[in-house]
Design a binder for these strands. Structure first.
Length: 423
RNA sequence: GUGGGCGUAGCUCAGCUUGGUUAGAGCAUCUGACUGUGGCUCAGAGGGUCGGGGGUUCGAAUCCCCUCGCUCACCCCA
Protein backbone atom coordinates (compact mmCIF):
# COMPACT_ATOMS: atom_id res chain seq x y z
CA UNK A 1 0.00 0.00 0.00
CA UNK A 2 1.42 3.32 -1.07
CA UNK A 3 1.67 5.98 1.60
CA UNK A 4 1.16 9.50 0.37
CA UNK A 5 1.97 12.92 1.70
CA UNK A 6 -0.26 14.75 4.19
CA UNK A 7 -2.77 17.30 2.97
CA UNK A 8 -1.30 20.74 2.52
CA UNK A 9 2.28 19.44 2.50
CA UNK A 10 4.57 19.21 -0.50
CA UNK A 11 7.97 17.86 -1.47
CA UNK A 12 10.53 20.20 -2.96
CA UNK A 13 12.05 18.20 -5.81
CA UNK A 14 15.51 18.89 -7.24
CA UNK A 15 14.31 21.11 -10.09
CA UNK A 16 12.47 23.34 -7.62
CA UNK A 17 15.15 23.11 -4.96
CA UNK A 18 17.38 25.24 -7.17
CA UNK A 19 14.87 28.10 -6.98
CA UNK A 20 14.60 27.59 -3.23
CA UNK A 21 18.36 27.77 -2.86
CA UNK A 22 18.43 31.00 -4.81
CA UNK A 23 15.80 32.57 -2.55
CA UNK A 24 17.52 31.35 0.61
CA UNK A 25 20.90 32.56 -0.52
CA UNK A 26 19.50 35.95 -1.47
CA UNK A 27 17.80 36.27 1.91
CA UNK A 28 21.02 35.40 3.76
CA UNK A 29 23.17 37.69 1.61
CA UNK A 30 20.90 40.71 1.93
CA UNK A 31 20.22 40.20 5.64
CA UNK A 32 23.96 40.07 6.22
CA UNK A 33 24.38 43.33 4.33
CA UNK A 34 21.78 44.92 6.60
CA UNK A 35 23.43 43.56 9.74
CA UNK A 36 20.74 41.04 10.65
CA UNK A 37 22.06 37.82 12.20
CA UNK A 38 20.44 34.47 11.60
CA UNK A 39 18.41 32.89 14.39
CA UNK A 40 17.10 29.31 14.40
CA UNK A 41 14.42 28.48 16.90
CA UNK A 42 12.64 25.15 17.53
CA UNK A 43 9.64 24.12 15.47
CA UNK A 44 7.84 23.17 18.66
CA UNK A 45 7.01 25.62 21.45
CA UNK A 46 4.71 25.77 24.43
CA UNK A 47 1.20 26.51 23.26
CA UNK A 48 1.01 29.42 25.67
CA UNK A 49 3.73 31.28 23.76
CA UNK A 50 1.47 31.69 20.75
CA UNK A 51 -1.67 32.27 22.78
CA UNK A 52 -0.01 35.19 24.49
CA UNK A 53 2.21 36.36 21.66
CA UNK A 54 -0.14 36.13 18.69
CA UNK A 55 -3.38 36.70 20.57
CA UNK A 56 -6.12 34.34 21.69
CA UNK A 57 -8.66 36.11 19.52
CA UNK A 58 -6.79 35.56 16.25
CA UNK A 59 -7.91 32.95 13.74
CA UNK A 60 -4.45 31.46 13.86
CA UNK A 61 -4.70 30.64 17.55
CA UNK A 62 -8.40 29.90 17.62
CA UNK A 63 -8.59 27.38 14.80
CA UNK A 64 -5.39 26.91 12.87
CA UNK A 65 -2.74 25.59 15.25
CA UNK A 66 -1.24 22.12 15.28
CA UNK A 67 -1.56 21.67 19.03
CA UNK A 68 -1.19 18.43 20.96
CA UNK A 69 -0.04 17.13 24.31
CA UNK A 70 3.42 15.60 24.50
CA UNK A 71 4.25 12.52 26.56
CA UNK A 72 4.73 14.70 29.62
CA UNK A 73 1.20 16.00 29.12
CA UNK A 74 2.37 19.50 28.22
CA UNK A 75 0.42 21.36 25.57
CA UNK A 76 2.80 22.06 22.69
CA UNK A 77 2.27 23.66 19.29
CA UNK A 78 3.97 23.57 15.94
CA UNK A 79 5.06 27.14 15.25
CA UNK A 80 2.32 28.91 13.22
CA UNK A 81 4.30 32.14 12.71
CA UNK A 82 7.79 33.39 13.40
CA UNK A 83 7.69 36.45 15.60
CA UNK A 84 6.57 34.96 18.92
CA UNK A 85 9.37 32.39 18.90
CA UNK A 86 11.98 34.99 18.07
CA UNK A 87 10.77 37.25 20.88
CA UNK A 88 10.95 34.31 23.26
CA UNK A 89 14.51 33.56 22.15
CA UNK A 90 15.45 37.24 22.36
CA UNK A 91 14.35 37.31 25.99
CA UNK A 92 15.76 33.90 26.88
CA UNK A 93 19.18 34.60 25.35
CA UNK A 94 19.62 37.88 27.17
CA UNK A 95 20.95 39.41 23.96
CA UNK A 96 18.93 42.55 24.58
CA UNK A 97 20.19 42.99 28.12
CA UNK A 98 22.78 45.63 27.23
CA UNK A 99 20.09 47.82 25.79
CA UNK A 100 21.62 47.65 22.35
CA UNK A 101 19.39 47.04 19.35
CA UNK A 102 19.24 43.41 18.23
CA UNK A 103 18.54 42.35 14.66
CA UNK A 104 17.54 38.81 13.71
CA UNK A 105 16.49 37.08 10.53
CA UNK A 106 15.18 33.55 10.04
CA UNK A 107 14.17 31.09 7.37
CA UNK A 108 11.83 28.57 8.94
CA UNK A 109 8.81 26.35 8.33
CA UNK A 110 5.44 27.39 9.76
CA UNK A 111 2.38 25.19 10.33
CA UNK A 112 -1.24 26.15 10.09
CA UNK A 113 -4.17 23.78 9.90
CA UNK A 114 -6.11 25.36 7.03
CA UNK A 115 -7.74 24.15 3.85
CA UNK A 116 -5.02 24.37 1.24
CA UNK A 117 -5.40 26.22 -2.05
CA UNK A 118 -3.20 27.95 -4.61
CA UNK A 119 -0.36 29.65 -2.73
CA UNK A 120 -1.47 28.31 0.63
CA UNK A 121 -0.25 25.26 2.49
CA UNK A 122 -0.37 23.67 5.91
CA UNK A 123 3.39 23.74 6.09
CA UNK A 124 4.97 26.77 4.52
CA UNK A 125 8.35 28.39 4.87
CA UNK A 126 8.79 32.01 5.80
CA UNK A 127 11.80 34.18 5.88
CA UNK A 128 11.49 37.08 8.23
CA UNK A 129 13.37 39.72 10.16
CA UNK A 130 12.84 41.21 13.61
CA UNK A 131 14.45 44.42 14.78
CA UNK A 132 14.41 44.97 18.57
CA UNK A 133 15.21 47.95 20.71
CA UNK A 134 14.66 50.98 18.49
CA UNK A 135 11.56 53.06 18.15
CA UNK A 136 12.41 55.35 15.30
CA UNK A 137 10.69 55.59 11.92
CA UNK A 138 14.07 55.00 10.28
CA UNK A 139 14.13 51.51 11.77
CA UNK A 140 10.72 50.76 10.26
CA UNK A 141 11.81 52.06 6.90
CA UNK A 142 15.14 50.22 7.05
CA UNK A 143 13.22 47.01 7.70
CA UNK A 144 11.05 47.64 4.68
CA UNK A 145 14.12 48.41 2.61
CA UNK A 146 15.58 45.06 3.64
CA UNK A 147 12.49 43.21 2.45
CA UNK A 148 12.19 45.13 -0.79
CA UNK A 149 15.90 44.67 -1.56
CA UNK A 150 15.38 40.93 -1.38
CA UNK A 151 12.38 41.13 -3.71
CA UNK A 152 14.28 43.37 -6.11
CA UNK A 153 17.17 40.93 -6.33
CA UNK A 154 14.75 38.11 -7.04
CA UNK A 155 13.09 40.18 -9.77
CA UNK A 156 9.65 40.22 -8.20
CA UNK A 157 7.16 42.90 -9.12
CA UNK A 158 5.34 44.08 -6.02
CA UNK A 159 3.24 46.78 -4.43
CA UNK A 160 3.64 48.12 -0.92
CA UNK A 161 0.58 48.98 1.15
CA UNK A 162 0.82 50.69 4.52
CA UNK A 163 -1.48 51.77 7.31
CA UNK A 164 -1.63 53.15 10.83
CA UNK A 165 -3.64 50.85 13.08
CA UNK A 166 -3.02 52.70 16.33
CA UNK A 167 -1.21 51.64 19.47
CA UNK A 168 -2.22 50.09 22.76
CA UNK A 169 -1.57 53.18 24.83
CA UNK A 170 -3.91 55.80 26.26
CA UNK A 171 -6.99 54.28 24.73
CA UNK A 172 -5.70 54.76 21.19
CA UNK A 173 -6.69 51.33 19.88
CA UNK A 174 -9.89 51.48 21.91
CA UNK A 175 -10.96 54.73 20.36
CA UNK A 176 -10.27 53.34 16.91
CA UNK A 177 -12.40 50.33 17.73
CA UNK A 178 -15.15 52.59 19.02
CA UNK A 179 -14.84 54.80 15.99
CA UNK A 180 -15.24 51.82 13.67
CA UNK A 181 -18.21 50.53 15.63
CA UNK A 182 -19.82 53.91 15.63
CA UNK A 183 -19.36 54.23 11.89
CA UNK A 184 -20.89 50.86 11.09
CA UNK A 185 -23.60 50.89 13.75
CA UNK A 186 -26.33 52.30 11.54
CA UNK A 187 -25.52 50.09 8.55
CA UNK A 188 -25.28 46.90 10.53
CA UNK A 189 -28.56 45.42 9.22
CA UNK A 190 -27.28 45.78 5.64
CA UNK A 191 -24.01 43.94 6.33
CA UNK A 192 -23.07 40.28 6.01
CA UNK A 193 -23.40 37.73 8.80
CA UNK A 194 -19.63 37.56 9.32
CA UNK A 195 -19.38 41.31 9.73
CA UNK A 196 -22.21 41.40 12.24
CA UNK A 197 -20.20 38.90 14.31
CA UNK A 198 -17.00 40.86 13.76
CA UNK A 199 -18.76 43.96 14.99
CA UNK A 200 -18.68 42.48 18.48
CA UNK A 201 -15.54 40.31 18.41
CA UNK A 202 -13.08 42.27 16.25
CA UNK A 203 -14.59 45.37 14.62
CA UNK A 204 -11.40 46.33 12.77
CA UNK A 205 -11.71 43.22 10.67
CA UNK A 206 -14.93 44.57 9.14
CA UNK A 207 -12.73 46.94 7.14
CA UNK A 208 -11.14 43.92 5.50
CA UNK A 209 -14.41 42.31 4.36
CA UNK A 210 -14.42 41.58 0.63
CA UNK A 211 -18.18 41.28 0.22
CA UNK A 212 -19.32 43.96 -2.18
CA UNK A 213 -22.19 45.14 -0.04
CA UNK A 214 -19.90 45.60 2.95
CA UNK A 215 -17.17 47.24 0.88
CA UNK A 216 -19.61 49.87 -0.32
CA UNK A 217 -20.37 50.81 3.23
CA UNK A 218 -16.70 50.74 4.19
CA UNK A 219 -15.97 53.11 1.30
CA UNK A 220 -16.93 56.17 3.30
CA UNK A 221 -14.82 55.30 6.33
CA UNK A 222 -12.02 57.77 6.91
CA UNK A 223 -9.50 55.17 8.06
CA UNK A 224 -8.04 53.89 11.29
CA UNK A 225 -5.20 56.39 11.29
CA UNK A 226 -7.52 59.37 11.48
CA UNK A 227 -8.82 58.21 14.83
CA UNK A 228 -5.47 57.17 16.32
CA UNK A 229 -3.65 59.10 19.04
CA UNK A 230 -1.39 62.06 18.22
CA UNK A 231 1.76 60.00 18.82
CA UNK A 232 0.70 57.37 16.31
CA UNK A 233 -0.28 60.01 13.79
CA UNK A 234 3.06 61.71 14.11
CA UNK A 235 5.07 58.50 13.96
CA UNK A 236 3.16 57.28 10.94
CA UNK A 237 3.57 60.63 9.23
CA UNK A 238 7.33 60.47 9.70
CA UNK A 239 7.44 56.99 8.21
CA UNK A 240 5.63 58.25 5.13
CA UNK A 241 8.04 61.14 4.85
CA UNK A 242 11.03 58.80 5.04
CA UNK A 243 9.51 56.45 2.47
CA UNK A 244 9.09 59.39 0.12
CA UNK A 245 12.61 60.63 0.74
CA UNK A 246 13.97 57.19 -0.03
CA UNK A 247 11.93 56.91 -3.21
CA UNK A 248 9.96 53.90 -1.98
CA UNK A 249 6.63 53.72 -3.74
CA UNK A 250 3.67 52.82 -1.58
CA UNK A 251 -0.08 53.07 -1.35
CA UNK A 252 -1.82 54.11 1.78
CA UNK A 253 -4.64 51.75 2.57
CA UNK A 254 -6.55 53.15 5.54
CA UNK A 255 -8.45 49.88 5.71
CA UNK A 256 -5.43 47.59 5.86
CA UNK A 257 -5.81 45.44 8.96
CA UNK A 258 -3.61 42.47 9.69
CA UNK A 259 -4.79 39.22 11.16
CA UNK A 260 -2.28 39.27 13.99
CA UNK A 261 -3.20 41.21 17.09
CA UNK A 262 0.25 42.29 18.13
CA UNK A 263 0.85 45.08 15.63
CA UNK A 264 0.99 48.65 16.90
CA UNK A 265 0.83 51.88 14.94
CA UNK A 266 2.48 50.83 11.71
CA UNK A 267 1.57 47.87 9.49
CA UNK A 268 2.46 47.04 5.92
CA UNK A 269 1.74 44.38 3.36
CA UNK A 270 3.48 43.61 0.09
CA UNK A 271 1.37 42.15 -2.69
CA UNK A 272 2.38 40.53 -5.95
CA UNK A 273 0.59 38.83 -8.83
CA UNK A 274 0.65 35.19 -9.86
CA UNK A 275 -0.34 33.80 -6.47
CA UNK A 276 -3.83 32.55 -7.26
CA UNK A 277 -6.47 34.21 -5.13
CA UNK A 278 -3.80 35.23 -2.65
CA UNK A 279 -1.82 38.32 -3.39
CA UNK A 280 0.23 38.85 -0.28
CA UNK A 281 3.87 37.78 -0.46
CA UNK A 282 4.94 39.44 2.74
CA UNK A 283 3.82 41.66 5.53
CA UNK A 284 4.79 43.06 8.84
CA UNK A 285 4.85 46.07 11.04
CA UNK A 286 5.71 47.41 14.46
CA UNK A 287 4.92 45.49 17.62
CA UNK A 288 5.92 47.56 20.60
CA UNK A 289 4.14 45.65 23.33
CA UNK A 290 4.85 42.01 22.54
CA UNK A 291 8.19 41.81 24.32
CA UNK A 292 6.54 43.08 27.47
CA UNK A 293 3.52 40.84 26.96
CA UNK A 294 5.85 37.86 26.88
CA UNK A 295 7.50 38.79 30.15
CA UNK A 296 10.25 41.16 29.10
CA UNK A 297 10.75 44.84 29.62
CA UNK A 298 9.31 47.58 27.45
CA UNK A 299 11.24 46.91 24.23
CA UNK A 300 9.93 48.26 20.93
CA UNK A 301 10.28 46.13 17.80
CA UNK A 302 9.50 46.02 14.11
CA UNK A 303 9.63 43.12 11.67
CA UNK A 304 8.17 41.23 8.75
CA UNK A 305 7.52 37.76 7.41
CA UNK A 306 7.40 36.59 3.81
CA UNK A 307 6.27 33.26 2.37
CA UNK A 308 8.88 31.57 0.22
CA UNK A 309 6.34 29.48 -1.71
CA UNK A 310 4.60 32.67 -2.76
CA UNK A 311 7.89 34.38 -3.54
CA UNK A 312 8.74 31.52 -5.87
CA UNK A 313 5.28 31.65 -7.46
CA UNK A 314 5.78 35.36 -8.08
CA UNK A 315 9.26 34.76 -9.52
CA UNK A 316 7.93 32.09 -11.86
CA UNK A 317 5.00 34.15 -13.05
CA UNK A 318 7.41 36.96 -13.86
CA UNK A 319 9.97 34.72 -15.60
CA UNK A 320 8.05 31.75 -16.97
CA UNK A 321 10.18 28.80 -17.99
CA UNK A 322 13.32 30.10 -16.35
CA UNK A 323 15.63 27.33 -15.16
CA UNK A 324 17.32 27.79 -11.81
CA UNK A 325 19.21 24.48 -11.74
CA UNK A 326 22.70 23.64 -12.95
CA UNK A 327 23.52 21.20 -15.72
CA UNK A 328 26.50 18.83 -15.77
CA UNK A 329 29.55 20.17 -17.56
CA UNK A 330 30.86 16.81 -18.64
CA UNK A 331 28.98 13.56 -19.17
CA UNK A 332 31.29 10.57 -19.19
CA UNK A 333 30.33 7.68 -21.47
CA UNK A 334 32.12 4.38 -21.89
CA UNK A 335 32.34 1.33 -24.12
CA UNK A 336 33.96 -1.95 -23.15
CA UNK A 337 35.24 -3.71 -20.04
CA UNK A 338 38.51 -1.85 -19.59
CA UNK A 339 36.70 1.44 -20.01
CA UNK A 340 34.11 0.38 -17.44
CA UNK A 341 36.90 -0.07 -14.89
CA UNK A 342 38.26 3.36 -15.65
CA UNK A 343 34.92 5.15 -15.22
CA UNK A 344 34.88 5.77 -11.49
CA UNK A 345 38.52 6.87 -11.27
CA UNK A 346 38.01 9.29 -14.15
CA UNK A 347 34.80 10.67 -12.64
CA UNK A 348 36.51 11.08 -9.28
CA UNK A 349 39.37 12.92 -10.88
CA UNK A 350 37.08 15.26 -12.80
CA UNK A 351 35.00 15.96 -9.71
CA UNK A 352 37.53 16.04 -6.90
CA UNK A 353 40.71 16.84 -8.81
CA UNK A 354 39.38 19.40 -11.25
CA UNK A 355 36.14 20.39 -9.49
CA UNK A 356 34.07 19.77 -12.60
CA UNK A 357 30.39 18.90 -12.46
CA UNK A 358 30.56 15.44 -14.08
CA UNK A 359 27.91 12.76 -14.57
CA UNK A 360 27.53 9.26 -16.00
CA UNK A 361 25.04 6.44 -16.25
CA UNK A 362 25.79 2.73 -16.07
CA UNK A 363 24.25 -0.43 -17.46
CA UNK A 364 23.34 1.17 -20.76
CA UNK A 365 24.60 0.94 -24.31
CA UNK A 366 26.86 3.65 -25.68
CA UNK A 367 23.99 5.01 -27.70
CA UNK A 368 21.76 5.12 -24.64
CA UNK A 369 24.53 6.82 -22.69
CA UNK A 370 24.82 9.45 -25.39
CA UNK A 371 21.08 9.98 -25.26
CA UNK A 372 21.32 10.41 -21.51
CA UNK A 373 24.19 12.87 -22.01
CA UNK A 374 22.09 14.85 -24.44
CA UNK A 375 19.09 14.91 -22.15
CA UNK A 376 21.14 16.01 -19.17
CA UNK A 377 22.10 19.14 -21.06
CA UNK A 378 25.80 18.48 -20.49
CA UNK A 379 28.16 20.70 -22.46
CA UNK A 380 30.61 17.90 -23.27
CA UNK A 381 30.61 14.13 -23.58
CA UNK A 382 33.83 12.54 -22.40
CA UNK A 383 34.18 9.29 -24.27
CA UNK A 384 36.22 6.39 -22.93
CA UNK A 385 36.38 3.19 -25.00
CA UNK A 386 38.69 0.19 -24.86
CA UNK A 387 40.16 1.45 -28.11
CA UNK A 388 40.97 4.81 -26.55
CA UNK A 389 42.51 3.17 -23.50
CA UNK A 390 44.82 1.06 -25.63
CA UNK A 391 45.89 4.14 -27.51
CA UNK A 392 46.25 6.17 -24.33
CA UNK A 393 43.75 8.91 -25.22
CA UNK A 394 40.18 9.97 -24.62
CA UNK A 395 37.66 11.80 -26.75
CA UNK A 396 35.84 14.93 -25.79
CA UNK A 397 32.76 15.80 -27.79
CA UNK A 398 31.14 19.20 -27.79
CA UNK A 399 27.45 18.39 -27.44
CA UNK A 400 26.33 21.57 -29.07
CA UNK A 401 28.49 21.58 -32.19
CA UNK A 402 29.15 17.84 -32.39
CA UNK A 403 32.87 18.55 -32.76
CA UNK A 404 35.18 15.88 -31.31
CA UNK A 405 38.70 16.34 -30.02
CA UNK A 406 41.25 13.97 -28.51
CA UNK A 407 43.11 14.27 -25.26
CA UNK A 408 45.93 12.07 -24.03
CA UNK A 409 45.10 10.26 -20.80
CA UNK A 410 48.02 11.87 -18.96
CA UNK A 411 46.80 15.36 -19.76
CA UNK A 412 43.30 15.49 -18.40
CA UNK A 413 44.35 18.22 -16.01
CA UNK A 414 44.93 20.42 -19.04
CA UNK A 415 41.34 20.19 -20.27
CA UNK A 416 41.13 23.91 -19.92
CA UNK A 417 44.13 24.82 -22.00
CA UNK A 418 43.86 22.14 -24.62
CA UNK A 419 40.22 22.50 -25.54
CA UNK A 420 39.28 25.83 -24.18
CA UNK A 421 36.75 24.11 -21.96
CA UNK A 422 35.63 26.67 -19.50
CA UNK A 423 35.28 25.04 -16.15
C1' G B 1 -15.89 24.65 8.78
C1' U B 2 -18.71 25.97 3.75
C1' G B 3 -19.18 25.67 -1.68
C1' G B 4 -17.65 24.33 -6.97
C1' G B 5 -14.50 21.21 -10.28
C1' C B 6 -11.78 16.69 -11.00
C1' G B 7 -9.82 11.33 -10.13
C1' U B 8 -8.51 6.55 -16.87
C1' A B 9 -0.57 4.59 -18.64
C1' G B 10 5.31 7.87 -15.48
C1' C B 11 2.97 13.01 -17.28
C1' U B 12 -1.18 15.76 -20.00
C1' C B 13 -5.73 14.10 -21.36
C1' A B 14 -9.83 11.62 -24.87
C1' G B 15 -13.63 7.89 -24.14
C1' C B 16 -18.77 8.52 -19.99
C1' U B 17 -24.24 12.12 -22.48
C1' U B 18 -27.04 7.30 -25.58
C1' G B 19 -23.50 0.60 -21.04
C1' G B 20 -21.50 -3.86 -25.82
C1' U B 21 -14.86 -6.94 -29.34
C1' U B 22 -8.39 -7.37 -26.51
C1' A B 23 -9.68 0.77 -22.87
C1' G B 24 -7.07 4.93 -26.60
C1' A B 25 -3.84 9.38 -28.08
C1' G B 26 0.26 12.74 -27.38
C1' C B 27 4.63 13.30 -24.53
C1' A B 28 8.14 10.32 -21.79
C1' U B 29 10.75 5.36 -21.47
C1' C B 30 13.10 1.12 -23.97
C1' U B 31 14.75 -1.40 -28.67
C1' G B 32 16.05 -1.15 -33.75
C1' A B 33 17.15 1.32 -38.64
C1' C B 34 22.92 3.48 -37.48
C1' U B 35 26.60 -4.01 -34.75
C1' G B 36 31.62 2.74 -31.10
C1' U B 37 28.34 8.29 -30.77
C1' G B 38 23.13 12.33 -28.70
C1' G B 39 19.46 15.86 -31.00
C1' C B 40 15.87 15.01 -36.43
C1' U B 41 13.06 11.09 -38.89
C1' C B 42 10.90 6.28 -39.26
C1' A B 43 9.53 1.29 -37.34
C1' G B 44 8.35 -1.47 -33.11
C1' A B 45 7.86 -2.68 -27.73
C1' G B 46 6.76 -2.30 -22.61
C1' G B 47 3.57 0.15 -19.31
C1' G B 48 -3.56 0.33 -16.73
C1' U B 49 -6.78 -2.80 -9.62
C1' C B 50 -10.27 3.14 -15.36
C1' G B 51 -9.15 6.28 -6.99
C1' G B 52 -11.63 2.38 -3.54
C1' G B 53 -16.15 -0.39 -2.03
C1' G B 54 -21.05 -1.83 -2.99
C1' G B 55 -25.40 -1.99 -6.30
C1' U B 56 -28.27 -2.34 -11.18
C1' U B 57 -27.39 -5.45 -15.62
C1' C B 58 -26.36 -11.10 -19.67
C1' G B 59 -22.51 -7.20 -19.71
C1' A B 60 -20.09 -1.13 -16.20
C1' A B 61 -14.44 3.40 -17.28
C1' U B 62 -19.67 4.60 -18.74
C1' C B 63 -25.81 4.30 -14.79
C1' C B 64 -26.99 4.58 -9.04
C1' C B 65 -25.28 4.80 -3.76
C1' C B 66 -21.30 5.21 -0.28
C1' U B 67 -16.29 6.40 0.57
C1' C B 68 -11.27 8.23 -0.05
C1' G B 69 -8.16 11.64 -2.43
C1' C B 70 -6.76 15.94 -5.26
C1' U B 71 -7.85 20.84 -6.70
C1' C B 72 -9.96 25.80 -6.80
C1' A B 73 -12.62 29.32 -4.05
C1' C B 74 -14.85 31.44 0.71
C1' C B 75 -13.09 32.56 5.83
C1' C B 76 -8.18 33.89 7.10
C1' C B 77 -3.26 34.33 6.03
C1' A B 78 2.50 34.14 3.89
Amino acid sequence: MKINILKGMYDVLPDDAAAWQLVEKTVRDVCNLYGFGEIRTPVLEKTELFERGVGKQTDIVKKEMYTFNDKGDRSVTLRPEGTASVVRAYLESGLGAQGEPVKFFYIAPMFRYERPQAGRFRQHVQFGAEYFGIKDPAADVETILLLLSIYDRLDIKYELNINNVGCGKAGCRDSIRDGVKKYFERNLPKMCDDCRLRYESNPLRILDCKKESCMEITEGFSGTGEISCPDCKQYYGEIKKLLDENAIKYSENPKLVRGLDYYTTFVFEVSASGLGAQNSVGGGGRYDSMVKDLGGSDVPAVGFGSGIERVILAMKSRNPGKQYGTKPKIFVVFQGEKAYKEMLPVLSYLRNGLNINACAVFGKSLKAQMRAANKSGAAYAFIIGDREIEEGRYKLKNMETGEEKEIRSGEIENLNKIFGVSI
